[in-house]
Design a protein around this nucleic acid. Structure first.
Lengths: 232, 232
DNA sequence: ACCTGAACACCGTTCAAGT
DNA sequence: ACCTGAACACCGTTCAAGT
């Protein structure tokens, strides 16, 4: 149940209230619970009342993406392009971590909103201001892909561990037999000892590791004067 | 309508026929048309008959992913790790391009299947055989992310262009005014002249550009003897 | 003119009745 | 024991009836 100080009835319904309620509902109950019917109930109105403020569910989801994009920090103009991009993307990541449903909604959109284009244009502008060519900026934006939003498509979502220790151990022995390389990764390093694949990984470390690898690669290409058809 | 040489009735229903029909239906009519009810109709059976061969829709989708994973070429053991990984991933990409729905299904799974783990273990094994440390192999697998499947999460899906040239031109002028950096990317290089963002990009070039940037980065870290907490 | 209840055309899945 | 039609508990959205 999402908190509603005014019982969801005092102020008249408007687009902003609809969007904020949708975000709150998705935050609290998960994106699968966000139906037009549930949202209407949360707001104390009949489902059809929502269609006065959003044309359909697609437009509702678009609006929710805009709410999240609005939470990304504005650019810091006093740094080099590398630091600027890095800070911006890590800010986007913080926004996304506050709204776990957002990455799935972003990747399911078929049209960018104006706010989304603003953000992307600003990122591209930072590369250009840093001296990267139009061409290199273009390709580099593609390489970043969903990472500009602060998330990455993982190999597979973290599997929930079996709760009982003995089932856990049994599963791990089976895993180690059939998948030796995955097992050695899972058992190595700073992980929970004996954790199963994907658990115990430090998501933030992995994200920054990848981001810095990419930014270093971009810088190297830029300094080498990269041009199309000119790959070393 | 999916082709059914035997009218979908001759051979008795089994799991394999269900999965192959599901893949064919998704290929032909799109993943949104793949419902248990539609699939049953395609096979000439009552919807509940499917539940004898798959526990539920989740398991059906898992089985479909396995069909696609089965189409990835086996590893070529006569090359270095870099070429080996590159070939394997480009093979996965070809399989995915044959089944446009597959990337969305892969990213929506919550549990890897045994075949998926086989593939990932094989990729990790190639890095290890090339001499990369367990730690570096681990992080490098995370950096690849969905790229091991041959797809990337784009910034946003390609917007369909307005069909009428004048609407097209008007949209582009508006775009250029508000989004100068996106516009200069869209108008530059080898694209359709005046194309809108995301259209006219050579997806295969972008994919290979990113993949090679990453593989070069991995090689550099490996040669530098990268270790955790040792980033230059 | 505005609002909204009922209805439409779907889902995935359960369950009990029929063979 | 097996199979399956009807039913359940949902969807997003249309539409016409009521105010």
């Amino acid at each position: 149940m999402v908190q509603q100080p005014d019982g969801g009835r005092r102020s008249p319904l408007n687009r902003d209230r609809v969007l904020r309620a949708a975000v709150a509902l998705a935050d609290a109950a998960g994106i699968d619970s966000l139906s037009m019917r549930n949202l209407a109930q949360e707001l104390g109105v009949v489902p059809m009342a929502l269609y006065k403020h959003v044309a359909n569910k697609e437009e509702l989801l678009e609006g929710m993406v805009d709410v999240i994009v609005g939470e990304i920090d504005p650019p810091d103009l006093d740094t080099g392009w590398k630091t600027g991009i890095r800070q911006r993307i890590l800010s986007a990541r913080r926004a996304l971590l506050r709204h776990p449903w957002a990455s799935r909604v972003i990747e399911s959109r078929s049209q960018p909103t104006l706010l989304v284009l603003d953000y992307l244009d600003s990122i591209a502008g930072t590369f250009r201001a840093g001296g990267l060519s139009v061409d290199l900026t273009h390709h580099v934006m593609h390489v970043l892909g969903s990472r500009v939003w602060g998330f990455t498509q993982e190999l597979f979502p973290a599997s929930p561990l079996p709760a009982e220790p003995e089932a856990h151990a049994a599963m791990f022995r089976e895993l180690a037999g059939r998948y030796p390389h995955i097992a050695e990764i899972a058992t190595s390093g700073a992980h929970d000892e004996g954790s199963v694949v994907g658990r115990g990984c430090d998501d933030q470390f992995e994200f920054e590791f990848a981001l810095d690898l990419l930014l270093d690669g971009f810088e190297r290409l830029h300094q080498q004067g990269w041009q199309s058809g000119n790959r070393s």
